[in-house]
Amino acid sequence: MDRAGMSLEIPVEGNNFSAAGEAASRVKKTLLRLGIDSQLVRRVAIATYEAEMNMVIHSDGGKIILQVDEEEIKVQAVDQGRGISDLELAMKEGYSTAPDEVREMGFGAGMGLPNIKKCADRLEIKSVVNEGTTVVMGFKYQP
């Protein structure tokens, strides 16, 4: 299979809950179409969905970039939102600043970033307060 060079960019709207999840769904479908192992696709889909929901809930939106190459599957969630001031705290299970109306929808457990860490083989978060957040997730073909 020739995986080299495949890449896809999907816009994500902030605060739009009816479209939320569409980017992750497209990433999932694209990877399945490329014939990538379904357990691996599942990990990518869960992590991408968590990152997308974070953009919808905590930022003003941005984009999801999928890159499939020889070494790994790379998903980046890039936003121009308010950023994360204390990354170590944000990574803690149970830490959440989600507002009540979002919690009522079932989000705000403070488990998204820890979930991403569990699913991805490589995780890098760059965030600047009031400028934005970039979450880079790498997934290896052989776990």
Binding site: S18, G21, Y49
Partner: peptide, 16 residues
């Protein structure tokens, strides 16, 4: 679940 918003269907789709 007691959650009834559209996100629960998205979630269901994501993890089959």
């Amino acid at each position: 679940t007691g959650l009834t918003n559209p996100q629960i269907i998205r979630t269901a789709e994501m993890i089959e």
